[in-house]
Amino acid sequence: MLLVLVGLWVGQNVNMLPVAASSNAPLYDQLFTVLFVIGTILFLGILGLLLYSLIRFRRKEGDLGDGVAVEGNLQLEIFWTAVPAVVVLFVGIYSYDIYDRMGGMIPLSDPHAMHGGMAMESAATGPSDSMPPGMVMAANVPSAVEGAEVRTWGGIGGSPGSSSGALPVDVTALQFAFLFHYPEGDFISGELHVKAGQQVELRMEARDVIHAFWVPEFRLKQDVIPGQPTILTFTPTRAGSYPIVCAELCGPYHGGMRSTVVVHEPDAFDAWLDQNRPATVASAASGLSATG
């Protein structure tokens, strides 16, 4: 019981995480607390048991006898099979729930694309005149996807455009930088600027090798894999600047591949957006020369 109390206290009072700045960060922190409490209880319990045994059952100087010959105890063994099983099941279900609330369980892309490859058979046939018909097989490997419809491979938050009202940003990761392209305004920025409270939909693609987009304060990470467009949606909640870190080894300058995400208050964001529209930038430049 004491153990449980200590565990709960530790979970409540030891804060090991950076500030929470997105809508799923509090969910994450909730999960973290639960895991931390359970972990602390288990660890301290086992540690205590071990230390107690080591002290209590130390061999006395000169005592050459043996301990008791207990070879097992079925009830006990069942008990300590069941307890971890229950704990693990609980944790699993709980974290599933959290993940669902973070949007992680929304099916990616359209179901058609998952099996589309198998269904589509190439109609191209080879030089069939030299062989009896039917013996030449165009290998029915998934053929080139005809349309422009791009498949989304992974991420959090579903297929493109699934969340209406979200701010779309195209992210390109390359050695060694992130580029953020804003379709609304058609310009490219080296920093990510978003509006507090508005959902953001990152459509990510990599040019060369695998990178990973990570914002510790958002508790979000997504690999950006060449050839596999990926979606990441989230809602920032707290204004401020936070680091964007590349978390997947991508070459010598992997450690330097960082950027910043700036979460603006709503009107500040609109101002920023206006400022950066190519048209505005041009006029701002001329304005600058006029005043300066």
């Binding site: 059952f57 061999r59 693990v88």
Partner: peptide, 30 residues
């Protein structure tokens, strides 16, 4: 994979509790 992975804690846990029980009541040479 979350569920399958977490379940490894069960057989592993059995081993650890068995070791603790092995120590319990022994005459331990530290």
């Amino acid at each position: 994979f979350t569920i399958a992975t977490a379940f490894i804690a069960v057989p592993t846990g059995i081993k650890f509790f068995n070791w603790l029980a092995t120590l319990w009541g022994g005459k331990i040479a530290l």
